[in-house]
Amino acid sequence: MARKKIPIKKIDNINARQVTFSKRRKGLFKKAQELSTLCDAEIALIVFSATNKLFEYASSSMQQILERHSRHSGAQGLDISSIGQQLGSDSFDMLRKEIEDKTHNLSQLNGDELQGLTIEELQKLEELLQRRWTTISKIKDEKIIQEINSSKTKEAELMEENQKLKQRLAREQRQSHESITCSSSDFSPDIGSSDTSLKLGLRLFE
C-alpha cells in the first residue's frame, strides 16, 4: 500500500507539526551527512525550529565552513556582524540571545550572578547541582571500588608469586644439602683396611 503523500503546506496541528519537524530534520541531516561522505563535500546546516530552538550540522567545522563561505563571498574576514548578515537579523538575535543565556546559566552553575534569582529559581539550581553532584559521586565511588579490586588482585598475585619463590628456594636448599651429604659419604676413609695393612707390615718385619 502506497504511503499517503503529505501536501507541502504549513501543518496546522502543533503536535503533528513538531513531530514532522523532528523527523524531517533528522532526515535532512542524514542526507547532508551522506552527501558529504559520498562526494567529499563540506556542508553546514543551520535550522531554527518554530520554538526558536537551534539545530545545526557541519561535516567538519562550522566555523571553518562559515569562514570559507565568507571568503568565497568576497569578504575580508568573518566577524559577528557578517554572521548576522548571513543569518538575518531575527535569526542572529535569537542565536545571540541563546549564547547569552547559556553563558549566564554557566555562570550561575559556577556560583556567580545569583543575587537576582528568586527562591524557586535558587531551589531549581540547587536541585540541578545536587543531581550532578550525585552523578559525580557515583562515578567517583565506582572508580575507587575498581582501584581497590585492582589492588587486591595485584596483592593476591604477588603473594602467590612469593609463595612459589619460597617453595623453589626450599627445594634448592634441600637438593644442595643432599648433594653435600652424598659427597661426604663417597670420600670417607676405610679405617678397617688401613689397620689390616699396618698389621701385615709389622709381621713381615718380624
Score class of each variant (00 low, 15 high):
residue 10 K to I: 05
residue 108 Q to S: 05
residue 128 L to C: 03
residue 23 K to L: 12
residue 96 R to I: 10
residue 31 K to V: 09
residue 186 D to V: 14
residue 148 I to L: 15
residue 181 T to N: 10
residue 46 I to A: 08
residue 20 T to I: 00
residue 30 K to R: 10
residue 191 I to V: 15
residue 203 R to L: 15
residue 28 L to S: 02
residue 42 E to H: 11
residue 93 D to K: 14
residue 174 R to M: 09
residue 102 K to C: 04
residue 119 I to P: 00
residue 171 R to P: 00
residue 78 L to R: 04
residue 14 I to T: 10
residue 7 P to W: 06
residue 18 Q to N: 15
residue 124 K to N: 13
residue 149 N to H: 04
residue 146 Q to L: 09
residue 68 R to F: 01
residue 21 F to G: 02
residue 51 T to D: 15
residue 118 T to F: 02
residue 17 R to M: 04
residue 20 T to L: 10
residue 17 R to Y: 06
residue 105 N to P: 00
residue 120 E to A: 11
residue 86 Q to N: 01
residue 182 C to M: 09
residue 81 S to G: 02
residue 53 K to R: 14
residue 163 Q to F: 06
residue 177 H to T: 12
residue 160 E to R: 15
residue 46 I to K: 01
residue 56 E to I: 00
residue 156 A to Y: 06
residue 63 Q to K: 12
residue 90 D to Q: 07
residue 93 D to A: 15
residue 145 I to R: 14
residue 189 P to V: 06
residue 151 S to Y: 04
residue 75 A to E: 13
residue 191 I to P: 13
residue 116 G to T: 08
residue 17 R to D: 03
residue 12 D to A: 09
residue 53 K to W: 00
residue 99 I to C: 11
residue 121 E to Q: 15
residue 104 H to C: 01
residue 203 R to H: 05
residue 37 T to L: 14
residue 21 F to A: 04
residue 111 G to K: 10
residue 179 S to E: 13
residue 204 L to R: 13
residue 165 L to C: 01
residue 74 G to C: 02
residue 140 K to T: 07
residue 105 N to M: 12
residue 137 S to V: 03
residue 178 E to Y: 03
residue 195 D to Y: 06
residue 174 R to G: 01
residue 97 K to D: 13
residue 175 Q to D: 14
residue 21 F to H: 08
residue 34 E to V: 12
residue 40 D to K: 15
residue 74 G to K: 07
residue 182 C to R: 11
residue 17 R to A: 06
residue 128 L to S: 09
residue 20 T to Y: 12
residue 198 L to P: 00
residue 75 A to W: 08
residue 203 R to W: 06
residue 57 Y to Q: 06
residue 112 D to C: 00
residue 20 T to H: 12
residue 174 R to Q: 10
residue 155 E to Y: 13
residue 184 S to L: 15
residue 54 L to A: 03
residue 4 K to H: 05
residue 11 I to H: 04
residue 25 R to N: 06
residue 171 R to Q: 14
residue 32 A to L: 11
residue 38 L to Q: 14
residue 168 R to S: 13
residue 124 K to Y: 02
residue 203 R to T: 10
residue 14 I to S: 11
residue 39 C to D: 07
residue 9 K to S: 04
residue 144 I to W: 04
residue 89 S to T: 11
residue 89 S to I: 09
residue 14 I to A: 10
residue 28 L to H: 07
residue 24 R to Q: 11
residue 17 R to Q: 08
residue 59 S to V: 08
residue 68 R to S: 10
residue 9 K to A: 12
residue 16 A to T: 11
residue 51 T to A: 14
residue 158 L to D: 14
residue 3 R to F: 08
residue 137 S to T: 07
residue 172 E to R: 13
residue 157 E to C: 00
residue 172 E to T: 10
residue 103 T to M: 08
residue 163 Q to H: 07
residue 157 E to V: 05
residue 101 D to L: 13
residue 186 D to L: 11
residue 202 L to N: 09
residue 22 S to P: 00
residue 20 T to G: 04
residue 71 R to H: 07
residue 47 V to C: 11
residue 202 L to W: 08
residue 49 S to G: 15
residue 47 V to P: 00
residue 36 S to P: 03
residue 205 F to P: 00
residue 67 E to R: 09
residue 153 T to C: 04
residue 145 I to W: 01
residue 82 S to I: 14
residue 22 S to F: 09
residue 189 P to K: 09
residue 73 S to L: 15
residue 39 C to A: 14
residue 128 L to P: 02
